[in-house]
Design a protein around this nucleic acid. Structure first.
Lengths: 111, 111
DNA sequence: CACGCATATACCTTTGACGGTATATACGCT
DNA sequence: AGCGTATATACCGTCAAAGGTATATGCGTG
């Protein structure tokens, strides 16, 4: 499980993260809300913990999990260069500039 | 290849997107810059195109690929609920509030 | 129309993530 | 100590994504 991005490719893991976005939760709590088998929840939480997305604190038999934001911030940062596409304004400008200054045709002189 | 998130789990695909962030590029261009085998580039581009991350335009024998922002916007939107963790300020406040109003201990009455 | 370049696709193999089931560990309470 | 609850881990089978190689398609040019 290499990258940060691979971690959130899993739908159940995203669901868990979204749940934890609102508040700290126990494993059983997550299990119940997401209707997932308990071992599945534990395994996903392990992956999330090892990747730094969550941390747990012990409360008697229960473990309460909460968000650790760093990896999500990393994803947010990766998105930065693309944000200029968000606005239709800038998007339109972009297309226009591309037409003004097209990629030079490679006439097969290389390779 | 279900979700948007699974698409960008692949490092080469992220690299391709990052390349395209700066400008439209041909397959050969991408191949050269990323030192990837050509079929690999074509395959990744296919996945990206089918998922709506890029679109291509024909220029003689070449295909020029460019970013289509929608799926990336979707990811950006998914991140929204987590942004409140970004600032240390709000983060510290959050931890404080959690301590003030802890998750009620489930005393085993259910399940 | 034949050749070369640019790109796409087909096919095969490998690998590792995921789900399921069973079991282990840890803790609290009586 | 013994039982029930809460969570973690081990083990196993499956399946699909990714890489590699070979080949097909499309286009422009001499």
């Amino acid at each position: 499980m290499e990258s940060t991005f691979a971690i959130i490719a899993e739908p159940s893991r995203r669901a868990i993260l979204s749940l934890l976005a609102s508040s700290e939760r126990s494993v059983g709590d997550i299990e119940e809300r997401l209707k997932l088998p308990q071992p599945s929840v534990s395994k996903h939480l392990r992956v999330l913990r090892e990747a730094g997305f969550v941390e747990s604190r012990i409360d008697a038999q229960r473990r309460l999990y909460r968000i650790k934001p760093e990896p999500l911030m990393e994803i947010d940062a990766w998105l930065a260069p693309f944000r200029r596409f968000w606005s239709v304004h800038i998007d339109a400008l972009e297309r226009h500039l591309d037409q003004m200054n097209p990629v030079p045709r490679n006439k097969g002189k290389k390779r």
